[in-house]
């Protein structure tokens, strides 16, 4: 039994370094919990360049590890989140940000869906009004009898 324990301890001792190397997300020496929360929040908003559907917080790519360390060091230097983002954007472009910045080149991206929704709404309102007017004309024609004008055929039946 004792021998087994010794063996187990020896095995664990050998295994420990491989955990340290293979550990998916290496622990960083945060000063406090608030800083760790801030770090997690920030790296979740940043894209891993190598595996582009992962964020920096979750990625196990080599570069993501380097960039996490970089973000951590910038935080230790007292840089704000905006400064850290600007630092990465200067090197990798807007692509590192999951949320694209608002600028003339991205207006279509930001406001396009709302514009399309608005255009669709306008089309629907016009169609409803026209249909109502058509229905009114029909009623008018019915009460006016044979002398009434036939409603204008707009050809618009959608």
């Amino acid at each position: 039994m004792k021998l087994r324990l010794v063996l187990l301890a020896a095995l664990l001792a050998f295994a420990a370094p491989t955990w340290a190397v293979k550990g998916a997300i290496e622990p960083l020496p945060f000063q406090n919990h608030a800083q760790e929360v801030r770090f997690q929040h920030l790296t979740k908003q940043l894209r891993c360049l190598v595996c582009q559907n992962e964020n920096l917080a979750d990625s196990n790519a080599d570069l993501a590890r380097d960039l996490r360390l970089e973000v951590f060091q910038l935080m230790q230097q007292g840089k704000t989140d905006a400064q850290i983002k600007a630092y990465l954007v200067a090197r990798y472009g807007d692509f590192v940000l999951y949320q694209p910045p608002l600028k003339p080149g991205t207006w279509l991206l930001w406001f396009g869906p709302a514009a399309i929704l608005l255009a669709g709404g306008v089309v629907v309102v016009i169609a409803i009004r026209r249909r109502r007017r058509l229905a009114d004309n029909h009623q008018g024609a019915a009460t006016a009898g044979p002398s009434g004008e036939a409603p204008e055929n707009t050809g618009d039946d959608w």
Binding site: L49, L63, D66, L67, R91, G93
Partner: peptide, 10 residues
Amino acid sequence: GRTAIDFGVY
């Protein structure tokens, strides 16, 4: 790989 970050190498 620190300098490569400045070059935007990915």
